[in-house]
Nucleic acid binder design. Structure first.
Lengths: 144, 144
DNA sequence: TATTGTTATACTCTATAACTATA
DNA sequence: TATAGTTATAGAGTATAACAATA
């Protein structure tokens, strides 16, 4: 028997379990929280960090410029964001959250978190601790 | 200080972390595995358990009958499923996986699992154990 | 000329309504 | 009559190509 470095193929059974759990939970949350459509909600989430140009938002969302233009137009019609011409470069428009947009963002998060929390209501403290560690680990390996 | 039953609101910070991790991982897997479109892939996954009628598949996928009809037509055109009239009731059609469909299903899973496994390659055994327990727990609280 | 954003157009996936064929 | 499936049509959300305004 030889000691060897772990390889990615050894991880596949665990990876499958983790992937299926993540996909399943993501789908359930989406299907049970009928607030703002995901592609609009995520734009509000980006704007929480501060105003941004339309092109900037398109890049962050990995979506085409026309698609983002349409999303921002819809958000503006609903009063959730405002657009202003950039004083430094009149080609650009600065998109910002309105107070109503910020409320919609917080409400959407609340709905999603409450639905998720309700699923976990019968877990033991040990189970919750496992879940939290697992979740933080997932975000760590994805984000960098 | 009083001892009290845990309430769902206490779980919200953990729920948020778990939800964000799940959504983030699900999105990354989807964005990095360009195989069969999700709405076609899931139909193949249902058929792995055995043949089914179109209406049955529509119900399981929570999709309208015309949508499923179109998906099944496309899968049939690609040679991934076959349709046969039910000998017991000529209104119904039995949809089955073909050998090629089964290969596409296994390949799609492989791609998704390999992408996920690659993310986990630097985790410690303890971290992997946490992840597995967390994932199994998620599936347990969702599936029943 | 190059860049930012929008409009025009088309494709995909979804839905509801209308139709065909069996029961 | 009622049911399983399909076809007809329409609404979202996405894309590429063409255009307007500004740099």
């Amino acid at each position: 028997m030889t000691v060897r470095a772990p390889e990615a193929t050894d991880l596949i059974p665990i990876a499958r379990e983790v992937r299926l759990a993540a996909q399943s939970l993501a789908r359930h949350v989406k299907d049970h929280t009928p607030s703002l459509a995901p592609h609009l909600f995520t734009v509000l989430a980006w704007l929480e960090e501060g105003p941004a140009t339309a092109g900037d938002l398109a890049g962050r969302e990995r979506v085409s410029a026309p698609s983002m233009s349409k999303s921002v137009s819809e958000l503006e019609e609903r009063g959730l964001v405002s657009r202003a011409v950039d004083p430094m470069d009149a080609r650009q428009k600065i998109v910002s959250l309105t107070a109503s947009g910020r409320r919609a963002l917080l409400q959407g998060r609340k709905d999603r978190d409450r639905y998720t929390a309700a699923l976990l209501v019968n877990c033991t403290p040990e189970e919750l601790a496992d879940l939290l560690r697992g979740a933080q680990l997932i975000r760590k390996v994805i984000e960098p």
